[in-house]
Design a protein around this nucleic acid. Structure first.
Length: 424
RNA sequence: GUGAGCGUAGCUCAGUUGGAUAGAGCAUCGGGUUGUGGUCCCGAGGGUCGGGGGUUCGAAUCCCCUCGCUCACCCCA
């Protein structure tokens, strides 16, 4: 092969395309079931849309180019900045809350890995204008509905939920110096990924005092909201964050999805822009990387040019989800290419074949025939390959009586029917 | 960006201590007598062994370079 595909991109052959469309359609259905409406923006955006928010270093991680007039453009690495721009442009007239979803092709210039590509599809659901935990719960409920929609259950995946305010309050309560906070968050993030001894080493390296290490170890051991003990709750800040999380879990129970959800102090979600609840969906086996990432970002819209507006949402890529569905045998079978297959019993009788083909297509029926001709046996094989539900056998009866043989490929039954009655 | 592993047919792989026209299964295409599919049987096409260089009488096999893929780290909006 002379020209190689660009690293981290994929070719979608019919079976891949069928899966992609199936998946994206499930995402749409889940979004619409919750009353979200679809929006989209350009795949090309000014590079500043991303560098303004994240600093010039971010350009290293995305595809950019100079267009013919010298404008520096980037292929979108995510949808949120576009969303913010769209909200800002019509903020005065948008009915609140804004309930939008988006399914877009995104690009990131990163080293491709299992479940992580340079070109991928991402499902975004965002809810702007509502401050309370009910909005976070609504987003999580849509995510869980999306998981259900592709055939996954609470035995396959879980939503791990934390709150950035709780984390921040806890490190403050432990008396961790401000410049050590990123390291401490890093330790929390590694909770399930490295052995306990390693965590201890990391704490020592972070320069934590003995009491702080003990406190952190105690926090890391929390498996449940109820584990948050009195010592920490004594701080008003921690108590408030814990109370907010309890309200969120109360809503999740009311949505009927409590069994999918779990408190996890180890969910940190980068340090980017989250201001409240943060959550991720993981497979229970821990085999794959995160499937969904989401949370509350009350300041982001304001920073990106809109008026301050509370918001929350999530993103979900197609790559990891595809791997998980393959692993669970949940990839759907390829749909039939055509409902009807017209075959000739009398050699390559194109005139008669096309008469029937025109008739069926004119009635909106997906209809195929064997363009290479050949024996009826061969045509039947082709019809079976195409998974056609019906084969119409065209023979002498057409000119003699205007009738054709209709064969049901599932039951094997066949009967002579008038052409006029074919295809409704 | 750092480190490691792997590149043989479209796919999954076999190929002896370096030895002759590089194999299998699946897939593809064709056939199994001119009006009937999925099974079965027979046959065919398809590989510059990722590419380049070197060692050798001889390289898929050993060495070097390069490209690609995979995994981990970093990062993960």
């Amino acid at each position: 092969m002379k020209v190689q595909p660009v690293r981290g991109t994929r070719d979608f052959y019919p079976e891949d395309m069928a899966f992609r469309e199936w998946l994206l359609e499930r995402w749409r259905q889940a979004s619409r079931r919750a009353g979200f409406v679809e929006v989209d923006g350009p795949e090309l955006e000014p590079l500043e849309l991303y560098t303004d928010k994240s600093g010039p270093e971010i350009a290293e991680q995305l595809y950019w180019l100079d267009d013919k007039s010298g404008r520096r453009l980037a292929l979108r690495p995510e949808f949120t900045p576009t969303l913010a721009r769209m909200i800002a442009a019509r903020q005065a007239s948008l009915p609140e809350p804004v309930r939008w979803f988006n399914i877009s092709r995104c690009f990131r210039y990163e080293r491709a890995q299992r479940g992580r590509l340079r070109e991928f599809f991402q499902w975004n659901v965002d809810l702007a204008g509502v401050e309370g935990e009910i909005a976070d719960a609504e987003c999580i409920a849509v995510a869980v509905d999306g998981l259900r929609g592709v055939g996954l259950t609470a035995r396959d995946v879980e939503v791990r939920i934390n709150d950035r305010r709780l984390l921040a309050a806890l490190v403050r309560h432990l008396g961790v110096a401000e410049d050590r906070v990123p390291q401490v968050f890093g330790i929390l993030d590694k909770r399930d990924k490295v052995p306990a001894e390693t965590l201890g080493v990391m704490m020592a390296e972070a320069g934590l005092a003995a009491a702080q290490r003990q406190g952190l170890a105690r926090i890391l051991a929390w498996k449940d909201l109820a584990d948050i003990d009195a010592r920490e709750l004594a701080t008003p800040e921690v108590a408030a964050a814990a109370e907010s999380l309890r309200r969120l879990f109360g809503f999740l129970a009311a949505y009927g999805i409590a069994e999918w959800c779990r408190f996890d102090i180890g969910v940190v979600r980068g340090l980017a822009y989250y201001t409240g609840p943060v959550w991720e969906v993981h497979d229970l086996g821990g085999e794959f990387r995160a499937i969904f990432g989401g949370g509350r970002y009350d300041r982001l819209l304001g920073e990106l040019g809109a008026k301050a507006m509370p918001a929350c949402g999530f993103g979900c890529g197609d790559a990891v989800l595809g791997l998980l569905l393959d692993d669970r045998g949940l990839r759907p079978a390829l749909a039939a290419a055509a409902e009807f297959f017209v075959a000739s019993a009398a050699g390559d009788n194109w005139t008669d074949i096309l008469r029937v083909v025109r008739h069926l297509r004119g009635r909106g029926r997906a209809t195929q025939f064997d363009l290479k001709g050949g024996s009826l046996k061969r045509q039947m094989k082709k019809a079976a390959e195409a998974a056609a539900r019906y084969v119409v056998i065209v023979g002498d009866e057409l000119s003699a009586a205007g009738a054709v043989t209709l064969r049901d490929m599932q039951s094997g039954e066949q009967r002579l029917v008038p052409l006029d009655a074919l295809g409704g």
